[in-house]
Design a protein around this nucleic acid. Structure first.
Lengths: 233, 233
DNA sequence: CCAAAAGTGTTACCGCTACACCCATGA
DNA sequence: TCATGGGTGTAGCGGTAACACTTTTGG
């Protein structure tokens, strides 16, 4: 020690992503089934080794390009490092885990061994990948409340009803369309496109179409409490 | 590719911590001054290489034991991975960065080359360590609002005035003692010890002493908005 | 005219902020 | 009794939840 940098050997470093999408009314994660030992038959997260000249985010985007067209990814963010010495058998591998999101209007073509699974009913997962998926779900749920992250789940245009389905699936409980619209509108996240969607087969008022005003992540509810005094703000 | 684990070589992996403490009314960070190239004379975060048989958190705790008695650390949590290929000169080093907190009533003995610096006026820092410090500060500020993380800054017993100083220093703006006490009390985080502190030299009512009810991190304000319906809660 | 779906108006409630007021001590 | 610092009461405000009501379509 002493210079703050270890030059001693080094460990394998992989990047893994829990790519989430709302499909068929439930929050699902993209997994592939292992064909080799260890953990044959179990389901694993996509990813791979850290690329030599890329940082971890560029690396995970590169690996995901195999499984899902990168342009389909509406959001990618770091979750945490998983580094238990025995997290995978054999030589040590440290993993940087990511949350990835895909809008609900695209159905990326995926390889044979790859399938979507509801996060609420995961199959047998490989290594510590199950824990990573749950971490991703929790991060998504939290950020839906205090950021504009909803944009990453939606098509370019959508009705409030559709948005409610997305939020309900992601959060795991019924969200009120009325209040959802009000909260997002007050915060200036939602704007009407002026167009409307055709009514369903059984009639009903046609729904106005909305879009998110911004497509980059921004924190919209920064302080839960202990706000700075008004004059200082 | 294909099995989700890279066995190709491996990179050096270091762990770094921004250890924060409120000292002299301001939020400060523990840094040590580099005596060797690269970046001679600049100030760096404590840390070191990933320990062979420990995960990243155990590793940073082990390295910090050199600089500051580990038992003084009231809280440690992961911040993020810093992995830009050129973040340090020479062979690539990936870093897992941590936030560490020390209660304000202890003054750990530190090595010669180590000193505390106000986060608001950092000296010239080495590599990307300045960015890590700012990330740590932001994480602390956020979590003071929606968790009980205050416990990590305080002595076992404290007055509300003292607590206000700590929160003000950490948040960077004046916090009202009145409302601070009410918010923390309502959430059940604060309880009176029954004892009182002696008044100052110029008189005044003696202040009641309080303590945090729990000493582990817990989220106390989980949903900013979009709360689940009451029946489901 | 009725059913269905979308959207708005209104009320109630909760929690935080601000500020005035009361309490306990030393000089 | 006054100054000083600690603690409480209370009114106001902002924001969300809940729900009734209106609007717009298809049959």
């Amino acid at each position: 020690m002493g210079d703050g940098i270890s030059h001693s050997g080094g460990v394998a470093h992989e990047v893994l992503a829990a790519v989430l999408q709302v499909r068929d009314g439930s929050l699902q994660v993209m997994l592939w089934q292992r064909a080799r030992e260890p953990h044959v038959g179990r389901w694993a997260l996509p990813g791979g080794g850290l690329c030599p000249d890329e940082d971890v985010e560029a690396s995970i985007r590169w690996h995901l390009a195999e499984k899902v067209d990168v342009r389909r990814l509406s959001h990618v963010e770091q979750l945490a490092v998983f580094s238990a010495p025995d997290r995978v058998p054999g030589p040590r591998v440290v993993a940087t885990a990511f949350l990835g999101l895909v809008p609900c209007d695209v159905d990326p073509e995926t390889p044979e061994d790859t399938a979507w699974h509801p996060v609420a009913a995961l199959p047998e997962t490989a290594f510590d990948h199950g824990a990573i998926v749950l971490r991703a779900r929790d991060r998504l749920r939290a950020k839906l409340s205090y950021t504009n992250l909803g944009f990453a789940l939606t098509p370019p245009e959508f009705t409030v009803s559709a948005l409610r389905e997305l939020y309900s699936a992601a959060l795991g409980y019924r969200v009120s369309a009325t209040n959802l619209q009000r909260v997002l509108s007050r915060r200036g996240l939602l704007e009407p496109t002026g167009r409307t969607a055709p009514p369903g087969p059984s009639g009903g008022r046609p729904a106005a179409l909305f879009r998110f005003t911004g497509r980059g992540l921004s924190v919209t509810d920064p302080f839960a409490v202990l706000k700075p005094p008004r004059s200082t703000r």
